[in-house]
């Protein structure tokens, strides 16, 4: 954990060129305590304690409904190690994350830089953020409706422009994960772009002016100026969206379990890890095992985040 700290919060600890004495500028615990108190209470009560409790539960056979259970040591983890469903659901989640984050990030960077370079219209920015205003459940239902295999408007359109008849997006085992990933890309691309755009605003226009003067093309400016300077915000966005992406759940539940289907279907093709955790807790009452699965998921996310921050040298921008 200490290894990450220089990367997480480095920029402001760098020695100032001016060499100004900053001893009393940085407070220390007596000051920090009061600034942190409210959030620490919130964190402790609503995040840390439940997590510790969950960690403890993962060593028990806790029954959710009965609210009781006993310590069973590593049994849940042993079961998990040999659980094919766990590996399969993790693999599906990974596929989802790659498709979702990949497409979402690329499109969002594109939108953000276009918003930055083409137009300042607040109407356009607002329009792009609209999908994000809708609750997940509604988004899932809306697309379920538009992608319906026989009367969905998008399906009809695709047929019209010459795609084959086989457009069963939610009921084809090979298509369901890419479809759900695309839906969430639709929902979050504007939001992600807005976060990136906010980051772009920290790049002074003079940099572009100078580059344009030197005859740089838009693409060159994007690659040489925009991308490197966006790094801190890109780190923020990637960390947030990827963690969210690993926890994809309600879209899957609604889109695949909606009417005739089985949540996680067809044939388990969309049973992602979070759904598997949910099922163990809420359908099988096995909170202990659900907790063990959650612990593994949290560990995976910590590792992923750690490397993301390291890779992106989060605290730094080349501008600083």
């Amino acid at each position: 954990m200490t290894a990450v700290s220089p990367d997480v919060g480095a920029s402001e600890t760098r020695p100032k060129p001016s060499g100004k004495k900053v001893q009393n500028l940085t407070g220390g615990w007596p000051v920090a305590f009061w600034f942190l108190l409210p959030s620490m209470v919130g964190f402790l009560v609503f995040f840390l304690l439940p997590t510790i409790r969950g960690f403890y539960l993962s060593f028990t056979d806790w029954n959710l409904i009965g609210n009781n259970g006993k310590f069973i040591g590593l049994e849940n983890y042993e079961k998990l190690a040999g659980d094919d469903q766990f590996y399969a659901s993790m693999w599906r989640t990974l596929k989802y994350v790659v498709i979702n984050i990949g497409s979402q990030t690329v499109i969002a960077v594109l939108i953000a830089s276009m918003m930055d370079r083409l137009t300042r219209s607040s109407v356009i920015r607002g329009a792009l953020l609209l999908p994000w205003l809708m609750p997940n459940v509604v988004v899932a239902l809306l697309w379920l409706w538009m992608l319906d295999g026989s009367i969905g408007v998008v399906t009809e359109f695709l047929k019209f422009i010459g795609f084959s008849d086989d457009l069963a997006f939610f009921t084809d085992t090979g298509k369901v994960i890419p479809t759900i990933a695309a839906i969430n890309t639709w929902k979050y691309m504007g939001y992600t772009a807005l976060l990136m755009f906010a980051g772009l605003q920290t790049i002074p226009g003079t940099v572009y002016e100078a580059a344009a003067m030197d005859g740089a093309t838009e693409f060159q400016m994007f690659r040489k100026i925009t991308l490197p300077l966006m790094r801190p915000v890109l780190a923020l966005v990637l960390v947030i969206t990827m963690i969210g992406s690993f926890q994809v759940f309600d879209t899957v539940l609604v889109a695949t379990g909606g009417f005739g289907g089985q949540p996680g279907g067809p044939v388990n093709a969309s049973k992602v890890i979070y759904l598997y955790i949910y099922q163990n807790a809420f359908n099988f009452n096995d909170l202990g095992y659900a907790a063990a699965l959650s612990v593994i998921l949290v560990l995976i996310l910590i590792i992923v985040t750690f490397f993301q921050l390291k890779l992106l040298r989060a605290g730094e921008s080349d501008l600083a």
Binding site: L144, D148, G149, S150, A168, F170, T171, D172, F259, G260, G261, G265, P266
Partner: peptide, 12 residues
């Protein structure tokens, strides 16, 4: 076909 039933619901 089961795919139709899953997307629309059999009664629909």
């Amino acid at each position: 076909p089961i795919e139709d039933v899953e997307s629309l619901g059999g009664t629909t």
